[in-house]
C-alpha cells in the first residue's frame, strides 16, 4: 500500500518534470525562431491567457462549448448503453446495428461535421458530433461488459427472485464498472477534440471554436495556444470530475 502511494507520488513528480521540460523546449524553440506569428512563447501565451481570463466573453465561450460537448458526451453514454442492452440480448439487434456503428467508427469526423452542417444549426453541431464519437466506444464496451457478466450471479438473482432494479443495481452495474470506466476514459478526450473541431468548422457565435478560428484568421498564435491550453484544461478537469462522480456513485452502491 505504502509502496503504491509512493509510486503514485513519484509518477506525479516525474510527469510534472516532463511538462516543465516540454515548456522549456517550447521556450527555446520560440526564442530560436524569434517570430511571434509563427510560434508564441510560453510567457506570451500565459500573458494572453491572463488577459483573456479577465474578459467576460471568455467565460461565456467556455460555458457555451462546455455545455454542448458535455451534453453530447452524456447522450453518447446513454445512447451507447441503451443500444448495447438489446444487442446483447438479441443477435438480430446487434446485426442490424452493426452497419451504423461501423460507419460512425470508421468515417473521418470531418466528413460527419460537413454533412451535419447541412442538417443542423451550427450551435448544436458540437452536441451531435461529440455524441457520435462517444456512442460506438460506449456501445462496444458496454456490449462486451453485459456479455461477460457472471452467469452464476445472474442465476442467483433468478433463484432469489430479486426485483429488476436490485438486479440492475447490485448484480449488473458492479460488473459493468470496469467497462464503463474504460469507455468513459477513452471517449472523454475524444468528445472534446471532435466537439471543438465541429465548432471550428461550423463557427457558431460565442463558442471556443469560433475563438480558435479567429486566432487562426488573425495569425495570432498566442491566442491559438491560449485557447488550446484552456481546451486541454477543460478536458482534463471534466474527465477528473466525471470519473470522480462515477467512483462516488459506485462507492455509494458498494457500501452498506
Amino acid at each position: 500500500m505504502m509502496r503504491s502511494t509512493m509510486n503514485t507520488k513519484a509518477k506525479k513528480w516525474e510527469r510534472a518534470a516532463a511538462v516543465l521540460l516540454a515548456i522549456l523546449l517550447w521556450q527555446l524553440c520560440a526564442t530560436a525562431l524569434g517570430n511571434r506569428l509563427l510560434l508564441a512563447s510560453p510567457a506570451a501565451v500565459f500573458q494572453r491567457l491572463c488577459q483573456l481570463s479577465a474578459e467576460k466573453e471568455f467565460y461565456a465561450s467556455v460555458l457555451f462549448s462546455f455545455r454542448r460537448i458535455v451534453t453530447g458526451f452524456l447522450l453518447g453514454i446513454l445512447g451507447g448503453t441503451l443500444l448495447a442492452v438489446p444487442a446483447s440480448r438479441f443477435r438480430w439487434a446487434e446485426i442490424l446495428l452493426w452497419p451504423y456503428l461501423t460507419i460512425v467508427k470508421t468515417t473521418p469526423v470531418v466528413s460527419f461535421i460537413i454533412l451535419c452542417m447541412i442538417w443542423l444549426e451550427a450551435k448544436n453541431l458540437s452536441v451531435f458530433i461529440s455524441f457520435l464519437m462517444v456512442l460506438p466506444i460506449i456501445y462496444t464496451n458496454m456490449l462486451e461488459g453485459i456479455r461477460r457478466r457472471d452467469k452464476k450471479l445472474l442465476e442467483m438473482g433468478q433463484v432469489f427472485r430479486l426485483p429488476p432494479l436490485r438486479r440492475l443495481l447490485f448484480l449488473s452495474l458492479p460488473q459493468l464498472k470496469p467497462y464503463l470506466l474504460s469507455a468513459c476514459s477513452l471517449s472523454l478526450g475524444l468528445s472534446w477534440k471532435a466537439g471543438i473541431a465541429a465548432e471550428v468548422i461550423a463557427i457558431p457565435t460565442g463558442s471556443m471554436g469560433e475563438r480558435l478560428y479567429e486566432a487562426k484568421l488573425y495569425l495570432s498564435s498566442a491566442d491559438l495556444f491560449a485557447w488550446t491550453v484552456v481546451l486541454i484544461a477543460m478536458s482534463i478537469l471534466f474527465e477528473k470530475l466525471f470519473l470522480w462522480l462515477i467512483h462516488g456513485l459506485y462507492g455509494r452502491l458498494e457500501r452498506f
Binding site: 452464476k152 450471479l153 442467483m156 433463484v159 427472485r161 430479486l162 458492479p174 464498472k177 452502491l253 452498506f256
Partner: peptide, 25 residues
C-alpha cells in the same frame, strides 16, 4: 414461490461490501 439458496459456490457479488451482500435478497 419464495426460495432461498446456498449454492455450491458462494456466488457473492465481488465489489460489493459484506453488508450489501448479506442483505442483497
Amino acid at each position: 414461490r419464495k426460495i432461498s439458496a446456498v449454492f455450491q459456490e458462494n456466488r457473492l457479488c465481488t465489489g460489493l461490501s459484506v453488508g450489501r451482500n448479506a442483505a442483497l435478497a
